[in-house]
Amino acid sequence: MNRDNARWSKSSYSGGSGTECVEIAVLNRRVRVRDSKDPGRSRLDFAIGTWGEFAASLRQSGGEEAGAHGRLEA
């Protein structure tokens, strides 16, 4: 159920087996992260700047694949 009208996008880096699925959505200058297997449960909520810092830290720490992916960027 989409309680907040956010448009959720599944990460292409989520496991193909369907057991490691992460989705993000941007709504009201916040980035929300949830487990797509159980979207009604709690989710993480980040300020858009904090999310940008997180993505940048992944790129700097050798996570270029994740950091370069468009869905990781808010």
Rank of each mutant, 00 (worst) to 15 (best):
L27S: 07
T19A: 13
W8L: 00
N2A: 14
V22P: 04
S17G: 08
K37N: 14
S17L: 11
S57F: 03
R59Y: 14
S14G: 09
I24G: 01
L44R: 00
E65Q: 11
I48G: 06
P39Y: 02
D35L: 07
R7P: 15
S42V: 09
W51D: 00
T19R: 06
G63W: 05
G70Y: 12
A74M: 06
R71P: 13
G18L: 06
C21K: 01
A25H: 01
R41P: 07
K37E: 15
S57V: 03
K10G: 06
L72K: 09
W51L: 00
M1C: 14
W8N: 01
Q60P: 07
R43L: 08
E23P: 04
V22L: 05
A55G: 06
E20F: 08
F46I: 00
G67H: 07
N5Y: 10
G62Y: 04
S36A: 15
W8Y: 03
K10F: 05
G18H: 05
A74S: 10
A56P: 10
W51K: 00
L58Q: 11
E20Y: 06
K10Y: 06
S12D: 11
T50P: 07
F54H: 06
W8F: 02
L27H: 09
E23I: 02
S9I: 12
S61G: 11
E73S: 14
T50A: 13
P39A: 03
R71T: 13
E65F: 09
G63F: 04
E65C: 10
Y13N: 08
N2T: 12
T19Y: 10
L27I: 05
N28M: 03
A47M: 03
S17I: 08
L44H: 01
I48N: 05
S12H: 09
R32N: 13
R71D: 15
R32Q: 12
I48K: 07
S42E: 09
R41W: 03
L44F: 02
P39H: 04
G70L: 12
K10H: 07
C21R: 02
L58D: 11
N2D: 15
A68C: 11
S9M: 14
G63M: 01
R3Y: 15
T50G: 09
R34Y: 01
L58M: 11
G67Y: 08
Y13A: 06
E23N: 03
I24E: 01
R32K: 14
V31F: 02
I48H: 08
E53A: 14
D35R: 05
D38M: 12
E53M: 12
I48D: 05
R29M: 08
G15K: 08
V26W: 02
R29Q: 12
S36L: 10
A66Y: 11
S17P: 09
S11N: 07
S17E: 12
R7Q: 14
E64S: 10
R71Q: 12
S9K: 10
